[in-house]
Amino acid sequence: MPFTRVQELVYEMKVSQVMSRSVITVRPQMPMSELREIFRDKRISGTPVVDGDRLVGIISLEDFIKWLYDREGDSLIENKMTRNVETLYDDEPLVHAVSKFETSGFGRFAVVERRSGKLVGVITKGDIVEGLLKKLEIDYHEEEIHRYRASHIFEDIVADRTTLAFEYDVVGRDFERAGESSSRLKRTLKRLGLDPGVVRRVAIATYEAEMNLIVFTEGGRISVRLEPGRITVHVTDSGPGIPDVEKALQPGYSTAPQWVRELGFGAGMGLVNMQKCADEMEIISAPGKGTQIKIAILTGRKR
């Protein structure tokens, strides 16, 4: 599999698909002393504080222990709760939840409906892992996707903190599948809701790179990283290398054999096209040592 299904799923799935809906909530006017039973009986370590429909805070086991430790008299939850609650919207992709867990260090987030601001659920890391596992199982049944070791799941989603990475292994000379990686990448980026112009540029640059790997090398790897503000495409191969990079960058300069031209490629436009799509491009290549191309596309600004 070109890149792990889990990485793909965190984009596909929404927070609402894995969150717990049966949310135990408490009212702000409830005394702290009553939390003991709630936390114990429900086996939870935190709960949203709700006033009517409105989410006003979150109270955790930590807050409760601190209250016990301070040995004050009984107090209302509203005096001890965390007020600036970070929430997630139910329609956000899971990947947002993953990065929020990573950056905040919190154990749970309240999930609210985007329109009404109403509390609709709670999500924990455990919910995410469980949700992904379930989805993978279903997928296995439905599409007989390649085996995936479940033990890696958690590793995958926490490995990247603020960036998200996809990797595609491209097999050289495999014309039947030429463009498959770029196609998958494009669909994923589209689903993420990125600007269509940006998606198109990434897709075209990646597609040209993929064709080059297939035409000139025994295969290689396309790694794509998404960071705030930029998308980086890194293409590496251990193929023949480019003897003269400057020449290769001239429009129309080509070393491609005739049969490649018959496919509609190999007219000396590949690298030129990649450059056209990129905001930054770097080529490192030497004969016999393979080629590395790094392309950056900035997502924040219009061209």
Binding site: A178, S183, K186, R200, A203, I204, M211, L263, G264
Partner: peptide, 15 residues
């Protein structure tokens, strides 16, 4: 006038 699969791929990439 080209009729292979890469035409469809290209169309996909280029919107």
């Amino acid at each position: 006038g080209l009729t292979n699969q890469q035409v469809v791929r290209t169309a996909e990439m280029a919107d």
